[in-house]
Every structure is written in C-alpha cells, then in structure tokens.
Amino acid sequence: MRVLAAMSGGVDSAVAAARAVEAGHDVVGVHLALSRMPGTLRTGSRGCCTIEDSRDAYRACDLLGIPFYVWDFSERFQEDVVQDFIDEYAAGRTPNPCMRCNERIKFAALLEKAVALGFDAVCTGHYAKVITDADGNRELHRAADWAKDQSYVLGVLTHEQLQHAMFPLAETPSKAEVRAEAERRGLSVANKPDSHDICFIPDGDTAGWLAEKIEMQPGDIVDETGAKVGDHAGANSFTVGQRRGLKLGRPAADGKPRFVLEIRPKENTVVVGPQALLAVEEIRGIRISWAGLPIAEVATGEEFPCHAQVRAHGDAVPARARVEDVDGAAQLVVTLEEAMRGVAPGQTIVLYQGSRVLGQATIDKARSLQRVEL
C-alpha cells in the first residue's frame, strides 16, 4: 500500500512510520506546519508542531530512507481549531482542541489530500486499534495499552475515515517499549519528552491567552441560590469544575471550597457551589458522529448499554444511551449509572461497548438530580 505517515516529530509517529516501512508499504513522511510563527521552539514538554519538531521528523524520515515533506495547513488550523476554540469559550463552552484537530485537520484535511494524491492510508502514532469485522467493515477499538490508549481523541473518526486509518502502535504493550524500539532503530527522538498542554498555548496559560482574544467584561459570581458571592473579570475565562482562581470574598456557610457549576455568557455570570452539585447523571449531546457503521439501535431510537467517557484520560462509566429527534435534529441522550463531576458544555462525550468506540457527540447540556438543568 501507499502510506502517508503523519510525522509530528515525536517518538510515537517515528516508530509508527518505521513499522509501516518494515511491513513493506511504500511510505512517505509528512509534517504538518500548523503555525505561521515557526521561530517558536519547544520549551521542555510544552507545545508541539514547532521548527524543532519538523527537524526531528526530517531526521527520522532520513534514517528510514523515505521521502519527507512539510505541508502548510496553518490557515485551516487557524480557522478550524484555533478560532473554533475562541468561539466556543466566547459562548461559555469548554472545547477540546485536540478533538477538533483530529477531526478537521489530521483526518479530514490531511486524509482528503492524501487520497487525492493516490495514497491508500494515513499512518499516525496514535495508540488505538482498527479491527475489521466479518463483513469487511472497520471498527475503532482501544489500544492494547489502556493506560496510553488514545481512542477517545479519535472518537470523531467516521466510517469513511477509518477505511484509510493505520495505527501501527495498536498492539504495543507500553510506551517504554516504543522508546526502547526507537533506541534500537537509532531514532534520535527515542528519549524526547511527550508534548502536553494545548499546542497553540505552549506556556499553558489558557486564561491569559483567551484574555487577549475575547473581550472580557466584569460581572457577578453567584452561588447556587442566586446570591452574589463575588466578582469576576470575565466569565469566559472560567470552566465548569474549576476551584482555583475564584477569589471569593464571601466564604461558604459550611466553610468548604466552592466550584464553578455553570457559566452563563448571556448574563455574564459565573455560578459556583459545593462540589457535590457537580455530579451529573444525564448528558445531552449534539453534532453526533459514529466511528464506523452505527449500531442498529441508532436507527430505531432504542436505548442501548454502553460506557461513557468525557475526558481523554478519564474513566469510562457505565451508561445507557439513545438517539432522539429534537426539532428535526438528532440528539444523543446519555443516562449515567455512575455520576460524573465537572462535565461542561462543549466537551466531547465518547461512547464505548467493550473496547469498541461507538461514536461521539459535543456536550450541549448536562443534568444533575440535585439541580435544575445546567
């Protein structure tokens, strides 16, 4: 097969490309330039997609003896990921930019271009597995190493995209083994630290970064009863579940910390309360997509058992889900058998059955049995 290897400059993508070459595929490496500010270099393990990363990707391809290219996707990235991030925060939601990047850049824009150029598959260093069923349909599953599993951030992949997805690290039992393999192969990135944080906010100061992009207006912080307990400099810089940085002048009656329960952008109000009120038992999601062919219950509207996960490294909890028609639009309704805390509109909920990823939706509303709808 002709395989396009997406080379981030990290150890995972380098080893994935090496395995694709070793398997006999015709491999070409490509690094995505996602920023028009290439002078920024990595600081420790923060950020990614820098000049340093592109050089590391080139060195890996040179060692493997495969062609290497840099594709400029910076405009698409700015519009589909960065601006989406800003817009979602401005609307009082908490987005996941890595989900949007996988959805719109790495497995939409990149795959579209790859297929147009005659490639059969896009290979990445994600820890996830694609399984083909008896009828030849492809399913997305968790990786062998559940501690490193990245199927959550790939939950946005569609049936068509899975036909062209290749994840050579799927069966690797640990990240330590990947690093050891990179060392054996002579790859210079063998001990390169993993990247963390949002790539376009490498210093990790999301609130400070947003303050430069969104016009912040001071407003009230109220408790769950509606009583004012403090002031804020801009509601858009808060997120559900946040405890630090509230700077409340009026302590809670029980003396315990308060947490952000809700953000109301139209009123420019932040609602806080005790940690217990963060518990959510029902989630409603919009912008649904299915990873592979949807299960039969999706079409019939019947409820089906599943596990639900709302964070990349969070636990999946048992749940039941169904698809409803609400004013002509499909809405995913998930009833949790174990309450989750800190669920925020804008986050992504991914559904599983066993190790299989069923699909995902963007959280629109959450409901707590102890509170009115958020």
Score class of each variant (00 low, 15 high):
164 H>G: 01
143 A>I: 01
119 F>M: 04
120 D>W: 02
155 G>F: 01
89 Y>S: 08
110 L>M: 12
101 C>T: 06
157 L>H: 03
129 K>H: 14
107 F>M: 12
129 K>T: 11
152 Y>N: 06
116 A>N: 11
91 A>T: 02
139 E>M: 11
110 L>V: 09
114 A>T: 05
129 K>E: 14
149 D>W: 11
143 A>L: 11
139 E>H: 14
109 A>H: 12
156 V>R: 04
106 K>V: 01
147 A>H: 09
89 Y>R: 10
91 A>E: 15
166 M>S: 14
147 A>L: 08
99 M>S: 06
151 S>A: 15
109 A>Q: 13
121 A>G: 04
112 E>V: 03
149 D>Q: 03
141 H>I: 04
99 M>G: 00
160 E>V: 06
113 K>T: 12
144 A>D: 12
136 G>M: 02
109 A>C: 13
110 L>F: 04
118 G>W: 05
107 F>L: 04
94 T>A: 07
128 A>K: 00
146 W>Y: 05
123 C>M: 10
155 G>L: 00
123 C>F: 08
86 I>P: 03
134 A>Y: 08
85 F>H: 08
107 F>V: 05
105 I>T: 00
127 Y>N: 05
127 Y>R: 05
101 C>N: 07
96 N>A: 14
126 H>V: 02
135 D>Y: 07
112 E>T: 13
133 D>Q: 08
106 K>Y: 06
136 G>V: 01
124 T>W: 04
117 L>Q: 15
101 C>K: 04
146 W>A: 11
115 V>H: 07
167 F>Q: 09
86 I>G: 07
110 L>D: 00
141 H>S: 07
142 R>G: 13
166 M>W: 13
153 V>G: 00
155 G>S: 15
151 S>L: 07
115 V>N: 04
124 T>Q: 08
137 N>E: 15
137 N>P: 00
151 S>K: 08
146 W>K: 13
131 I>T: 12
104 R>Y: 02
107 F>H: 14
124 T>Y: 10
96 N>M: 13
86 I>E: 03
107 F>W: 15
99 M>L: 13
144 A>Q: 14
143 A>Q: 13
91 A>Y: 01
160 E>T: 12
113 K>P: 00
152 Y>F: 15
145 D>Y: 04
117 L>N: 09
148 K>W: 06
92 G>K: 07
161 Q>G: 06
129 K>Q: 10
145 D>I: 04
98 C>D: 15
164 H>N: 03
145 D>M: 08
91 A>D: 14
141 H>E: 11
122 V>Q: 04
87 D>Y: 02
146 W>S: 11
158 T>L: 11
98 C>H: 00
88 E>V: 11
154 L>H: 03
134 A>D: 15
116 A>P: 02
130 V>N: 07
103 E>G: 03
145 D>V: 05
126 H>E: 13
95 P>V: 04
90 A>S: 11
96 N>R: 03
137 N>V: 12
104 R>M: 10
156 V>G: 05
158 T>Q: 10
88 E>K: 11
87 D>H: 09
93 R>C: 06
86 I>C: 03
157 L>Q: 00
